[in-house]
Simulated assay, not measured.
Amino acid sequence: MKKIILFGVILCLFISCQQQEKPTISFYYWKTIFRLSPKEKNTLTTNEVKRLYIRYFDIDLSPKTQKPFPRTPIRFENTTSGYEIIPVVYIKNKVMLDKKLNVLDLAQKTNSFIQQINLKNNITIQEIQIDCDWTLESKDNYLRFIDAFKKISNKKLSATIRLHQIKYFKKTKIPNVDRGVLMYYNMGKIATDSLNSIYDLNIANRYLSSLKNYPLPIDIALPIYSWGIHIRDGKIIGLRNKINVKNLKNNSSFVLTKKNWFVVAHSDFKDGVFYKKNDQIKIETISENDLLEMANNLEENTVQNPKEIIFYDLDEFNLKNYEEGLFEKIIDCF
């Protein structure tokens, strides 16, 4: 009887320790040249980051041949020594929509290109991540690609998962990967209204409860980026990444009319973009409070804590918008 009680106590302590385990902090690196600034290096050191998810290349359809081809492959100017590198390959959904797609050929070529990049830069990997927002129409090709790629690469495989794929997994299916990463951003449509397309609590609430029923282990990706939506005559004409709001406020050509909205008072070129008089710029950002709200809601709606929180993306422009210690605050929510 004493042995049974002792075993029960040990089991409870073990479960308790498991429940208290906090996720680790990681980052996506989404630029075409791997070169870390002092600020970026300091962020990695301060937060004891061990893993970097580096976008190796995109896969798109060639305009001429309509065949898959790699775009904007990564070039390494800094060493990756000291970090575990997880290559990320972003595949546009239109590639998977091609009914004549040779899935096996694509898997072989994708793996081969990853190996070339690793060999050239003396990088050893244990895991690869596939990023694709597959749909009901493309799911058959996508799932077959994942199966083929897993066998060919002989590596651990993770895949990005969107909220709608969590809620409707019986229809969208679950890729044959070791784990998923929930992309907890880009929730709404990029639009001219007042809503934030990066994060919208009302939209998130439609899906959060579904997390408890998803059968695949998942980690979480959270946004730390911002952008400007360029509007002309009521229509969106482009997304402007890494817009410096402070510089806009100090430029007489741009007038702040309400929170996060600018109107172009005088036609002007800025950072290589032409802004016509009366154009509007809608700034969409993620605040510290937004991130803490996300973390708390996710913690309440997951059966088991994620092992990792991955922030998108590691860039000095993004990091300067947040106080030091924020990433630890977010981890402490779990």
Rank of each mutant, 00 (worst) to 15 (best):
F311L: 02
P223K: 01
I10T: 12
F269A: 00
Q126H: 12
P217T: 14
L195Q: 12
N47D: 09
Y28F: 09
E127A: 07
I198Y: 06
E284R: 15
T172A: 05
I114K: 13
C12N: 09
E137C: 00
I86T: 11
I166E: 00
A204Y: 12
S81N: 08
E293A: 07
N297C: 07
K92P: 00
D133Q: 13
T80C: 10
Q18M: 11
E328G: 04
H230W: 15
S16G: 08
S226A: 15
L298V: 02
N250I: 03
I85S: 02
D147I: 01
F7W: 12
Q280A: 01
D98L: 02
W30N: 12
F317E: 13
N289W: 03
S253A: 15
I310G: 05
I281P: 06
D131G: 04
S26R: 05
K246R: 10
I25N: 07
Y53E: 04
K94P: 00
T257V: 15
L216R: 11
N244E: 15
N250Y: 09
Y207W: 07
L101A: 05
N241S: 14
T302Y: 06
K277S: 05
N296M: 15
K41F: 00
L314V: 08
N78H: 13
K99M: 01
T257F: 09
K270V: 03
S209V: 05
E137M: 06
A204C: 07
L201Y: 10
K94Q: 05
I86M: 03
L256R: 13
S62Y: 08
I86Q: 00
T24Q: 14
Q115V: 03
R35P: 01
K41Y: 01
F317H: 15
A191P: 05
I15M: 07
V245Y: 07
I218P: 08
V181M: 11
L314Y: 07
P306S: 10
K212V: 01
D315W: 00
L248W: 13
S197T: 07
I283K: 09
Q108W: 05
R35G: 04
L292Q: 11
E127M: 02
Q108T: 03
V263P: 02
V9Y: 11
T257K: 08
E300D: 12
P306R: 01
D60T: 12
I310K: 07
V303L: 12
T45M: 08
N186M: 06
D131F: 06
F76L: 14
I224G: 14
T192A: 05
N305H: 10
K92N: 08
L13C: 07
F69N: 04
K242H: 15
V88E: 05
R55F: 02
T80G: 04
D193F: 03
D105P: 00
Q304H: 14
D58V: 09
T124Y: 02
L143Y: 08
V177T: 06
V49G: 09
D313V: 04
D140P: 01
S62P: 03
E77G: 03
Y199S: 00
C17E: 09
K39L: 13
K22F: 03
P38N: 03
I130Q: 06
K189C: 06
S287N: 07
Q129C: 01
N296E: 15
Y312I: 08
T160W: 00
Y29D: 10
F169P: 04
T172S: 10
F14E: 01
I25E: 08
I4L: 13
N297P: 06
K120G: 00
D178F: 10
F334V: 03
I236W: 12
H266V: 11
D105K: 12
K276V: 14
N141M: 07
K31P: 11
